[in-house]
């Protein structure tokens, strides 16, 4: 797999139709990405000891970052009885982040996606939340997906409401989303959705590894919070779906 750490020297990485090349210069390298499509990006990296890291990240950065949230629409809605529990596997979109790591600091310098990004509004026009839109099938068992476009996750559903509920979407806060990768898979940490009332649910994500052999990807929350100097991002634990889940 092409995810991983690379020394800043003459290197060529190919991911589908995207070519990343580093040409060694005196005291650094010239970074050049060609693709997807007609996209190109060039950077001069001045570093003697740093590394270049390719990692999957939650898909909220392309074409530009306007939200922290991902709304997963389930192709098959799930009907849950009062006080019922159910767990399903689903997918979320990922993008490929290019990071530079140095002495005690990591910085994202490039990001691209191999899938068409699409956004949607969750909630009303006045107060709703912009989300990255994603459609996913739901599965009873774990499965493999294309690691460059999607991560597989386990969603634990719980209905604490007194009536039957139909769940067809879940909004996840990417700032709490941990991605893990092994040889050829990308997984997200387990996510939870608890229906507490009609049209009201809470979602949150675990920070535990989904299994042995998985390495944690770079936590995007740290980079974003560093950029905006906000502690609020760290304090955010749950997202409340005020405007329904059907």
């Amino acid at each position: 797999m092409s995810y991983g750490k690379y020394k800043i020297e003459d290197t060529r990485i190919q991911i589908r139709d995207v070519t990343i090349e580093m040409e060694k210069l005196n005291g650094g390298a010239l970074y050049k990405r060609v693709g997807p499509g007609n996209e190109t990006k060039e950077l001069v990296i001045r570093s003697t000891s740093g590394n270049l890291i390719l990692n999957p990240i939650p898909a909220i950065f392309t074409p530009q970052k306007i939200t922290d949230f991902i709304c997963v629409h389930m192709n098959t809605p799930i009907v849950l009885e009062p006080n019922g529990n159910h767990s399903v596997y689903f997918t979320t979109p990922v993008e490929i982040g290019v990071f530079l790591s140095g002495k005690k600091d990591v910085e994202m310098v490039d990001v691209f996606t191999l899938e068409q990004a699409k956004y949607t509004l969750y909630g009303p026009i006045e107060k709703g939340v912009i989300c990255r839109h994603h459609r996913s099938d739901v599965y009873a068992e774990d499965f493999d997906e294309d690691p460059f476009t999607r991560a597989v996750g386990l969603l634990h559903l719980r209905n604490k409401y007194k009536e039957w509920v139909t769940i067809s979407k879940v909004v996840l806060d990417s700032m709490g989303m941990l991605l893990f990768l092994d040889e050829n898979r990308v997984r997200i940490a387990d996510s939870y959705m608890e229906v507490t009332d009609k049209d009201l649910a809470n979602t949150w994500m675990s920070e535990r590894s989904p299994g042995e052999g998985f390495k944690r990807s770079i936590l995007i929350r740290q980079l974003v919070s560093k950029a905006v100097q906000s502690k609020k991002v760290f304090d955010r634990k749950k997202f409340t779906m005020w405007w329904g889940y059907a």
Partner: peptide, 11 residues
């Protein structure tokens, strides 16, 4: 419209 990322699905 469908191919444009920021042309929203909903509304």
């Amino acid at each position: 419209i469908d191919e444009h990322p920021f042309a929203l699905v909903n509304p």
